[in-house]
Amino acid sequence: MKLLLDANMSWRLSRKLSSHFEDCFHVDNIGLAMPAKDLDIWKYALINDLIIVSNDIDFLNLANSRGFPPKVVLLRTGNQSNAYLEHLLVKHKKDIGELYSSTEYGFLEIV
């Protein structure tokens, strides 16, 4: 499973997570206009089979209106350190894998 971290997350986190997930990208490093629009991020993730990871509820709204894929992991943790977010995502790696494989749901909320 491949992750795409939204702009509201640190690009440094993508480096840390790349050892735990197949691939991990940050929106600032994929060639989209900066700042990237949510719909452009959505389309990029769809084309490239990426799971969007964000703490921005706008992606939940897109998931509700457009369906899936792409799939979305919404972090509801408030502002946290990269180390905390890395630990949290690795801790939920199995859940994220189940999200990736699911044909029934396209959204995972982590609190």
Rank of each mutant, 00 (worst) to 15 (best):
M1V: 11
M1Q: 07
K2N: 14
L3K: 04
L4K: 07
L5S: 06
L5Y: 04
D6M: 03
N8S: 11
M9H: 13
M9T: 11
W11Q: 06
R12Y: 15
S14N: 11
S14W: 10
L17C: 10
S18G: 00
S18A: 07
S19P: 00
S19M: 00
H20D: 13
H20A: 15
H20C: 12
F21G: 01
D23H: 06
H26Q: 04
V27F: 00
D28L: 07
D28Q: 08
I30Y: 00
I30S: 09
G31C: 10
L32Q: 05
L32F: 02
M34D: 03
M34F: 09
D38K: 05
L39K: 11
W42K: 03
W42T: 07
K43D: 14
K43Q: 10
L46Q: 07
I47V: 12
N48W: 02
L50H: 06
L50N: 01
I52T: 04
V53Y: 03
V53M: 02
V53F: 05
S54R: 01
S54A: 06
N55R: 13
N55C: 12
D56K: 02
L60I: 14
L60W: 11
L60E: 15
L60V: 13
L60T: 13
A63L: 09
A63V: 04
N64E: 14
N64I: 14
S65T: 14
R66S: 02
G67V: 12
F68I: 06
P69G: 13
P70A: 09
L74Q: 11
L75P: 05
L75R: 00
R76E: 15
T77N: 10
T77E: 14
S81Y: 04
A83G: 02
Y84S: 07
Y84M: 08
Y84H: 14
H87Y: 12
V90R: 12
K91Q: 15
K91N: 07
K93P: 01
K93F: 02
K93R: 12
K94T: 12
I96E: 05
I96C: 09
I96L: 05
G97E: 04
L99Q: 10
Y100C: 04
Y100L: 06
S101I: 02
S101G: 08
Y105D: 01
F107Y: 14
F107Q: 06
I110Y: 08
I110M: 03
